[in-house]
Amino acid sequence: MNANDKILKLGIPKGSLQEATMRLFARAGWKIKPHHRNYFPEVNDPELQCSLCRAQEMSRYVESGTLDAGLTGKDWILENESDVVVVSDLVYSKVSNRPARWVLAVAGDSPYKRPEDLAGKKIATELKNFTVKYFKNANIPVEVEFSWGATEAKVVEGLVDAIVEVTETGTTIKAHGLRIIAELLQTNTQLIANKKAWEDPWKRHKIETINTLLQGALRADKLVGLKMNVPKEKMEQVMDVLPSMTAPTVANLYHKEWLSVEIVVEENKVRELIPELMSRGAEAIIEYSLNKVI
């Protein structure tokens, strides 16, 4: 491969995940700047060529080789039955940073309580192929129709008996007066690669590098750094309450009977930890955010 061939074509999901994906890449070291007039954002890496693509179509473009790699949902890979390499799971989202769920929902006042109760009924969903297979495997005869959008409203308007829809918190479904009766699939974002690109040593190394740094950015999202000064005679008392990924970093302060102590800790533990550290003699405690933890 010559220098001019060292370009990785990377798909960025357009739509609801676009901003969250670009923020994640920024923390990982890639600044992606979209243009409102086209689907090819700028990126601060001459070895990357980014394309905006709907998550629903991403796996097809990666499978065909139009893209070398891309980010899309596990749900759309299953829906399209795409033959791609799943490099890794990247659990992030626009709302809760936890896996989303495709659920079966019915009207709140309907008699249906389980999937079997929908035998002979009509279901609307954007995830049609997967839903057809789900009910076929469960031996439940239903009619599944594709929904172009506003799926929740179709139950309310009496157009269908149930829907299969994606949700993170269930808030929107409840707001439409619907009730979840089953979870069909948990899904999260996945980094996928074209099989031929994965076999290319340079492209595989580039994809693996991207994955490493994205995972590091996600890992850092729940962690913070703490730095503090501790009198030497109180170090053991402080050590008794210090959580750390490994051992804390400890250094002598210049011409002082004090130590500088630095740790990485889960952000949700800090509110209880800082008062405890102060009570044991720690001073000048600094909390700082992290971009990546590799």
Rank of each mutant, 00 (worst) to 15 (best):
P46W: 04
L48S: 01
L48R: 05
L48G: 05
Q49R: 14
C50M: 09
S51R: 11
L52C: 06
L52F: 05
R54S: 15
M58H: 01
S59A: 15
R60C: 12
Y61I: 14
T66C: 12
L67A: 07
L71D: 00
T72E: 00
G73D: 01
D75T: 06
D75S: 13
D75Y: 00
W76Y: 11
I77W: 00
E79G: 00
E79S: 01
E79Y: 01
E81C: 09
E81D: 14
S82A: 15
V85E: 13
V85M: 12
V86T: 15
S88K: 01
S88I: 05
V91Y: 01
K94H: 13
V95C: 07
V95T: 15
S96G: 14
S96L: 13
R98Q: 15
P99G: 12
A100I: 06
A100K: 06
R101C: 10
W102M: 12
V103T: 08
V103S: 00
L104W: 06
A105G: 09
V106E: 01
V106T: 13
G108F: 05
S110L: 06
S110C: 09
P111D: 02
P111W: 10
Y112E: 14
K113Q: 14
R114A: 14
E116Q: 14
D117A: 09
A119K: 11
A119F: 03
A119N: 08
G120C: 10
K121I: 08
T125A: 04
T125W: 01
T125I: 04
E126Q: 14
E126V: 05
E126K: 04
L127A: 08
L127I: 10
K128F: 00
K128V: 14
N129Q: 13
K133C: 10
Y134K: 07
F135E: 03
F135P: 02
F135C: 10
K136I: 07
K136V: 10
N137D: 15
N139M: 10
N139D: 12
N139S: 14
P141T: 08
P141C: 07
V144N: 01
V144M: 01
S147P: 09
W148C: 11
G149C: 05
G149Q: 07
A150D: 15
A150W: 08
E152F: 06
A153Q: 13
A153R: 09
K154Q: 14
K154H: 08
V155F: 02
V155P: 03
V155H: 03
V156E: 13
E157R: 13
E157C: 05
L159W: 11
L159R: 15
V160S: 10
D161A: 12
A162H: 07
V164T: 05
V164Q: 02
V164F: 03
E165F: 05
E165L: 11
V166A: 08
E168S: 12
T169N: 11
T169G: 11
T169A: 10
G170T: 09
G170Q: 04
T171N: 12
T171E: 15
I173E: 00
